[in-house]
Design a protein around this nucleic acid. Structure first.
Lengths: 216, 216
DNA sequence: CCTCACCCGAACCGTACGGTACGGTTCGCC
DNA sequence: GGCGAACCGTACCGTACGGTTCGGGTGAGG
């Protein structure tokens, strides 16, 4: 349950059965260590101590330390869910509200401490060992989000609420308008201002500009 | 000389005298190791070997390993320069060309392998030891760039070429339109597509959209 | 009660790497 | 030529941490 509401309506079937409850608890402890102290702080001995399990179990469950890191990323990504678009989107106002809600959820996820910690971890490892983590985060996180966004935008286009040629291009603009350089600044350790944390306002402004570019 | 042209007209006086020529050569070797293998690949013994210097000298020059990393970031940031705006910007077309050139330079810097490696390094360390590196990269890199961008945009506003209330807000929009989520994807290890590497086209499209939002 | 699977806690091992010390060499300067 | 500063190469030390092994304990099933 990390900084993003769990939405039963959109839960993917592959999310739950991947790890046993006991393992999920351990993974949550691992995430906590990551958030607090970065990758260096997640040692096998330290995790075994804080999670009250044995190193032997860690290695049995996850293979090695890299497997543990991958498990943390995979598990956490599976926990992130977005509000479903729930059908009736022909009405312009409700559709725009849906887009705004999506952007707000995006900000909430990307700027959460757990997401930042996982991104920091994956980025830090991205050019060392075959880059398994970055790939995992991209495919289980960003790609899931972007594909959902594209279908949402295409729904808007189908109902003549938006106008664009390339859905991916339009999504990227929406992303850029919403995130700007805040993500990278937070990743670099800058502390978030109150303005940045006002996700509702930020989302509304981004959607406003997006509509000025792509509104029908 | 890393992926960004050196502009003699805009060289800051504090850039040159910080490190001796010999030290600069060593720092370039260090950057090369970082680009190739990430932070793990930059060991004091490894750097001493590839740069043909002694570990003793490394510790004399940079204090400890963290000091070495900070020196790499500081030195490399000092090497990044942008084309100067060089006065006559009253003409709408040349001003817009200046903005486009700025965006193109921004893309060239941020998407270069050396910049990515340094960002990965700083991000990876950002929640471990007092976050010296991230701060350094922000103040010596991003803030320099953004302040220059703001003055450029305000020049455009003064000449009634642009219209906005907050220069920083406008810059952030320009940044978001240009960078989108490409930066984070590259940081995570995704390989750049040909389209992404066409900085001229990307810059032109971003500036076009920027003008549709902020053009007078 | 026995067995077996699972797991905890702790001790242990090997190694990689940060940091230090030292002998030997080059080079500028008097 | 002699001196000292800077520096290279190498050997060395201490430690932290990944990974393994082992003894013991707990609980379900028979």
């Amino acid at each position: 349950m990390p900084a993003a509401a769990y939405d039963i309506a959109t839960a993917r079937p592959d999310a739950a059965p991947e790890f046993s409850p006991r393992q999920q608890v351990v993974l949550q402890h691992a995430l906590k260590l990551l958030v607090e102290g970065g990758e260096k702080a997640l040692t096998t001995a330290g995790l075994a101590r804080t999670a009250s399990c044995s190193k032997e179990s860690l290695y049995k469950w996850f293979g090695d330390r890299d497997g543990l890191l991958a498990a943390v990323v995979a598990y956490q990504a599976s926990q992130v869910q977005f509000p479903s678009e729930s059908g009736a989107t022909a009405d312009p106002d409700t559709f725009r509200a849906h887009v705004t809600a999506f952007v707000e959820a995006l900000l909430g996820v990307l700027f959460s401490e757990s997401s930042l910690a996982l991104n920091r971890l994956s980025i830090g490892q991205s050019n060392t060992n075959s880059n398994k983590l970055g790939e995992l985060l991209l495919v289980r996180g960003k790609h899931m989000i972007s594909s959902r966004a594209r279908t949402m935008l295409e729904t808007g286009r189908r109902h003549a609420l938006l106008k664009f040629d390339d859905a991916d291009d339009a999504y990227q603009v929406l992303y850029g308008l919403a995130i700007r350089d805040v993500h990278i600044r937070l990743l670099l350790g800058e502390t978030a201002t109150a303005e940045v944390n006002n996700h509702a306002d930020q989302a509304a402004r981004a959607v406003d500009r997006f509509y000025r570019l792509f509104g029908a």
